[in-house]
């Protein structure tokens, strides 16, 4: 492993990447990084990561790292969809209820958490340095904040260039989506998941989906921003007559229209009568930049497809 003594003139990060690339060719990445960080004096970017939030998991994966431990990885794949988690990542328990003993046994050199895990942070810090990142935080500047937090995360992981790349990829996806939407008729859009035949969850201002919608120059038909970015709303309140509705497919709701079809109010809504309904595939609604990118693409897909009545 002579690569470890990097040539003079390269920055520490560069040398780290050389090491990482070479080591990755020889051994599974986690093991190689672990060996590398134990070497005194070597670059100490954390590499055995336990990541306790799905939005963070997808961001870490998109930054080119594979965590050693993640809560409910099976559910992660169903909800976040991309980037996929490779097999063999250890399940560290439920979201909001990580298994401390198991995490300790995994011997991570850093734990990534969200501010929502605040009660567990002091306990987690006993195992390894624990850093909260808010790659998803409902607010009006959600995307800007997500980019900032992603950059901070990348710095923490010692891969700042990857953050720039991820941002770039996101911006490109947004540009492509915008170009595809150039011919969109400009109707305001409801983003809704059905709850039953009376209520839908409407995605509002402060949320991730609304942020993408607005950034693409589209108009959210639901005007009131909820502090958490979504709100349960009675069907009769979807009164924006000229709107179009996008129903969000979820892992537990393969046919989002089925719950609504028998409601008289749903049938009375003008955009339903005129058949302005489309379906968008599952996106993690509290995810990071990868979710934002995914949603932009799927939104463009949905809005360039033909309308379909239910």
């Amino acid at each position: 492993m002579s690569e470890r003594s990097a040539p003079q003139g390269l920055t520490r990060r560069d040398s780290f990447r050389v090491v990482a690339a070479a080591a990755a060719a020889l051994t599974p990445p986690a093991v190689a990084f672990a060996a590398e960080t134990r070497e005194p004096g070597a670059w100490a970017a954390p590499s055995r990561l336990v990541v306790l939030d799905w939005g963070l998991v997808q961001t870490v994966l998109a930054l080119g790292r594979v965590p050693v431990g993640v809560p409910a990885p099976g559910w992660y794949d169903r909800y976040a969809v991309t980037p996929r988690l490779q097999a063999g990542v250890t399940d560290v328990g439920l979201l909001f209820a990580p298994n401390f003993e198991l995490i300790q046994e995994l011997a991570p050199d850093a734990i990534l958490a969200t501010p929502a895990l605040a009660p567990a942070l002091p306990l987690l810090s006993r195992i390894a340095p624990t850093e909260p990142f808010a790659v998803f935080q409902p607010s009006r500047e959600l995307l800007a904040r997500s980019q900032r937090e992603t950059a901070r995360l990348a710095d923490f992981l010692g891969v700042p260039a990857a953050a720039a790349q991820l941002s770039l990829a996101h911006d490109e996806a947004m540009l492509r989506a915008r170009a595809r939407l150039a011919s969109y008729d400009g109707r305001p859009i409801y983003l809704a998941s059905p709850i039953d035949d009376r209520y839908v969850t409407v995605h509002t201002g402060n949320g991730l989906f609304d942020a993408i919608l607005t950034a693409l120059g589209l108009v959210n038909a639901w005007k009131t921003a909820s502090p958490i970015g979504f709100a349960p709303v009675p069907l009769a309140q979807l009164t924006e007559a000229g709107a179009r509705v996008l129903l969000l497919r979820t892992p537990l709701l393969a046919d989002p229209g089925a719950r609504l079809a028998r409601s008289v109010f749903w049938q009375a809504l003008r955009f339903v009568r005129e058949g302005r309904i489309r379906v968008v595939e599952q996106v993690l609604n509290n995810g990071g930049l990868p979710s934002a990118t995914r949603f932009a693409t799927l939104l463009a897909d949905a809005l360039t497809a033909p309308d379909g009545a239910l």
Binding site: T201, L252, F265
Partner: peptide, 23 residues
């Protein structure tokens, strides 16, 4: 609900006794 945290909202909407009607 703890194991399937993504979809508790609709469940609790029903559990909290909502009388609104649709027909």
């Amino acid at each position: 609900a703890l194991f399937n945290d993504q979809s508790v909202a609709g469940l609790y909407l029903w559990a909290s006794g909502n009388l609104s009607q649709s027909g």
